[in-house]
Amino acid sequence: GTVKVQGITIKVPNPDKAYKIAKKLAKKYNLTVTRKGNTIKVE
């Protein structure tokens, strides 16, 4: 899958794990995490 952070896309082998990490970071930096299948977008 991929993770998008402010325009940066990161390929990740485990979208579930990445999503959990993204959620933690999002809370810390007051961002929104959206997930569509293997693509995770943080904005």
Score class of each variant (00 low, 15 high):
33 V>F: 00
3 V>N: 05
18 A>H: 01
11 K>C: 15
15 P>H: 05
36 K>Y: 08
14 N>V: 04
18 A>V: 10
16 D>Q: 07
27 K>A: 10
16 D>L: 07
35 R>P: 00
5 V>S: 05
14 N>A: 03
11 K>F: 14
9 T>H: 09
42 V>I: 15
3 V>M: 07
31 L>Y: 04
6 Q>W: 15
40 I>P: 01
12 V>F: 10
18 A>I: 13
24 K>Q: 12
14 N>I: 05
25 L>I: 09
34 T>Y: 02
19 Y>N: 03
9 T>A: 08
27 K>M: 09
28 K>C: 14
20 K>F: 08
20 K>C: 15
43 E>I: 12
15 P>A: 14
41 K>G: 03
32 T>L: 10
43 E>S: 12
18 A>E: 01
2 T>M: 12
38 N>P: 02
20 K>I: 14
34 T>N: 02
19 Y>V: 05
7 G>K: 05
1 G>P: 08
4 K>F: 13
40 I>N: 02
23 K>T: 10
16 D>S: 06
14 N>C: 15
22 A>N: 00
34 T>A: 04
10 I>W: 02
8 I>H: 09
15 P>I: 15
36 K>R: 13
28 K>R: 10
16 D>R: 07
23 K>F: 04
24 K>Y: 13
41 K>M: 14
37 G>C: 02
17 K>N: 07
29 Y>D: 02
43 E>H: 10
33 V>M: 02
7 G>M: 08
26 A>C: 11
43 E>T: 12
19 Y>W: 12
8 I>Q: 03
18 A>T: 03
12 V>G: 03
24 K>G: 11
35 R>G: 01
30 N>S: 05
34 T>Q: 03
8 I>L: 11
39 T>M: 10
30 N>P: 07
39 T>L: 11
35 R>L: 06
34 T>R: 05
18 A>G: 02
36 K>P: 01
22 A>K: 00
12 V>N: 02
7 G>I: 13
18 A>W: 14
3 V>P: 05
29 Y>T: 03
19 Y>R: 07
30 N>K: 07
7 G>D: 06
24 K>L: 12
23 K>M: 13
39 T>K: 05
35 R>E: 02
42 V>Q: 01
35 R>W: 09
19 Y>L: 10
40 I>V: 06
40 I>R: 00
42 V>C: 13
9 T>E: 10
27 K>D: 10
4 K>G: 04
37 G>T: 00
4 K>D: 10
1 G>R: 05
35 R>A: 03
19 Y>D: 03
21 I>L: 08
11 K>W: 15
21 I>N: 03
35 R>Y: 03
5 V>W: 15
26 A>R: 08
15 P>G: 06
15 P>S: 12
29 Y>F: 10
28 K>T: 01
20 K>H: 11
17 K>E: 13
29 Y>P: 01
28 K>A: 10
20 K>P: 02
31 L>T: 04
17 K>R: 09
17 K>L: 15
39 T>V: 13
13 P>V: 11
27 K>H: 07
18 A>S: 02
33 V>P: 00
30 N>R: 07
14 N>F: 12
27 K>I: 12
41 K>E: 14
2 T>R: 09
11 K>R: 13
5 V>I: 14
3 V>K: 05
12 V>T: 06
42 V>G: 01
11 K>T: 11
32 T>F: 04
26 A>D: 00
21 I>C: 15
20 K>D: 14
32 T>Y: 07
18 A>N: 00
43 E>Q: 12
40 I>K: 01
14 N>H: 07
8 I>D: 01
30 N>D: 07
11 K>Q: 11
6 Q>F: 15
27 K>V: 06
38 N>D: 07
33 V>G: 00
9 T>F: 07
23 K>I: 13
41 K>F: 15
1 G>Q: 06
41 K>A: 10
43 E>R: 10
16 D>C: 13
5 V>Q: 05
1 G>F: 10
2 T>P: 05
10 I>H: 04
28 K>S: 08
25 L>A: 01
21 I>F: 12
32 T>G: 02
2 T>G: 05
2 T>Q: 10
18 A>Q: 01
36 K>T: 12
4 K>R: 10
8 I>Y: 04
9 T>K: 07
34 T>F: 02
37 G>I: 02
37 G>S: 03
28 K>I: 14
12 V>S: 04
25 L>T: 00
3 V>G: 06
24 K>T: 08
10 I>N: 02
10 I>R: 04
3 V>S: 05
33 V>A: 03
15 P>L: 15
23 K>E: 12
21 I>K: 03
36 K>D: 12
35 R>N: 02
12 V>L: 08
6 Q>M: 14
37 G>F: 02
5 V>H: 14
6 Q>D: 11
35 R>Q: 04
31 L>I: 12
7 G>S: 08
29 Y>R: 03
8 I>G: 02
32 T>D: 02
33 V>D: 00
21 I>M: 08
37 G>Q: 03
38 N>S: 05
26 A>I: 08
15 P>E: 01
24 K>N: 08
43 E>A: 09
15 P>C: 15
19 Y>F: 10
40 I>Y: 04
5 V>L: 12
3 V>Q: 08
11 K>E: 11
43 E>P: 01
31 L>P: 02
32 T>K: 14
40 I>H: 02
37 G>H: 02
18 A>Y: 11
3 V>W: 02
23 K>N: 05
15 P>M: 13
38 N>Y: 00
42 V>M: 06
24 K>R: 11
16 D>F: 08
2 T>Y: 14
1 G>H: 08
23 K>V: 13
25 L>Q: 01
31 L>S: 02
2 T>V: 13
25 L>Y: 08
19 Y>A: 06
17 K>W: 14
7 G>N: 07
22 A>H: 01
12 V>I: 11
43 E>K: 10
26 A>M: 06
13 P>K: 13
22 A>P: 01
27 K>T: 06
27 K>F: 05
32 T>S: 11
8 I>K: 07
21 I>Q: 05
9 T>G: 03
11 K>H: 13
4 K>L: 14
40 I>A: 00
21 I>Y: 09
35 R>H: 03
34 T>P: 00
42 V>S: 01
27 K>C: 04
